[in-house]
Computed example of a mutant assay.
Amino acid sequence: MTQSMTGYASVQGAGAGASWLWEIRSVNSKGLDLRLRLPDWLPGLDPAVRAALKDRVARGSVSVSLRVTADDGASTPRLDPLALDAVLDAVAQVEAAAQERGVDLAPATAAQVVALRGVLEAGAAAPDPDALARAVLADLPGLIDAFVSMRTDEGAAIATILSAQLDEVARLTDAARVAAADRAGEQKTRLAEALARVTDHADGADPDRVAQELALIAVKADVTEEIDRLGAHVAAARGLLGADAPMGRRFDFLMQEFNREANTLCSKAGSTALTEIGLALKVVIDQMREQVQNVE
């Protein structure tokens, strides 16, 4: 199954006294490059995210971010036990000192004690890190599923494009085979005429030796091998499209082989028709290479 290296997904969640937003996106890369932006105060996130991604993604520059916000609704005043103990000790010391000096003090009320700075904390209670980490990680499988699904959908679209381009390469390869066969008669006539000119104007030239050299030129101009290899590359590429595994690297290498055969075909063409076919092949192969750069 062909998968793209580009994709995006996001998941929102809430629980354990907070809300959060997961986001994941990826672009092309030679290998797997994971870039994580996660709250460092939540335990166990980094290794869990890396392990989950490596199990589902083979290539791409993948960025994952998690933003966590404490719930405002969870904001309830709460006592700070240490501050309360310190304040009560201080009140007791003040009352004891006043009694020793015969000074009567009105007893401190609970409201007055609570009103002292630091005794009553206003603001959100900090979420429990362990509970929150478990809650946000529960959304990770769904996030990765959505991300992989998008990459799969894009990969299917790329596979359709590549399949059509391979059909065009196959058509041009067949046309090249026909053009090469048509060229054979013309090439034989030209070589025979060249042989006659050489033997007629070169006194003492060995006709057999000249014939051998011309035959060697004919062999070097033969494009049968290049055409056969193009056909083999088309079959190999179609096999990759049907494979249920990452194939981007192999496909990229195969594109280099396609391009090499097309270049050789152009250099050995020897006819306008074959040259035009070779140039058309190079255009289609270049378009294929652009698509292959997106394949995982």
Rank of each mutant, 00 (worst) to 15 (best):
A97L: 02
A98F: 09
Q99K: 10
E100M: 03
E100I: 03
G102C: 10
V103N: 09
V103K: 12
V103W: 08
L105H: 12
L105K: 13
L105N: 14
A106W: 00
A106L: 04
A111M: 12
Q112N: 02
Q112T: 12
V113F: 05
V114W: 06
A115W: 08
A115G: 15
L116V: 09
L116K: 04
R117E: 04
R117T: 12
V119D: 10
E121Y: 01
A122G: 03
A122V: 12
A124V: 10
A125G: 12
P127E: 11
P127N: 14
P129C: 04
A131L: 11
A131V: 10
A131F: 04
L132T: 15
R134E: 13
A135W: 09
L137F: 05
A138H: 04
D139L: 14
G142K: 00
G142T: 06
D145W: 04
A146R: 11
F147G: 04
V148A: 14
V148D: 07
V148H: 13
R151I: 00
T152H: 05
T152N: 07
D153T: 15
G155N: 03
A157L: 06
I158L: 15
A159T: 12
T160G: 12
S163W: 03
S163F: 03
Q165P: 08
D167N: 03
E168F: 01
E168G: 03
E168W: 00
T173L: 03
A175W: 01
A176Y: 02
A179K: 00
A179G: 03
A180I: 07
A181G: 15
A181W: 05
D182N: 07
D182M: 01
R183T: 02
G185H: 13
E186N: 02
Q187T: 08
R190D: 00
L191T: 07
A192Y: 01
E193G: 11
E193Y: 04
A194P: 01
A194H: 00
L195I: 00
A196D: 13
R197D: 11
R197C: 13
R197N: 14
V198M: 05
D200Q: 15
H201Y: 03
H201A: 12
H201N: 10
G204I: 08
G204M: 05
A205R: 02
D206A: 08
P207K: 04
D208H: 13
D208A: 15
V210L: 07
V210S: 02
A211H: 09
A215S: 11
A215R: 07
L216S: 11
L216Y: 15
L216D: 01
I217M: 14
I217W: 05
I217N: 10
A218W: 08
A218C: 10
K220L: 13
K220G: 09
V223M: 09
T224V: 12
E226Q: 09
I227F: 06
R229K: 14
R229T: 13
L230W: 05
G231A: 13
G231P: 09
A232H: 11
V234L: 12
R238H: 08
R238D: 06
G239K: 06
G239F: 10
L240R: 14
L240S: 13
L241C: 06
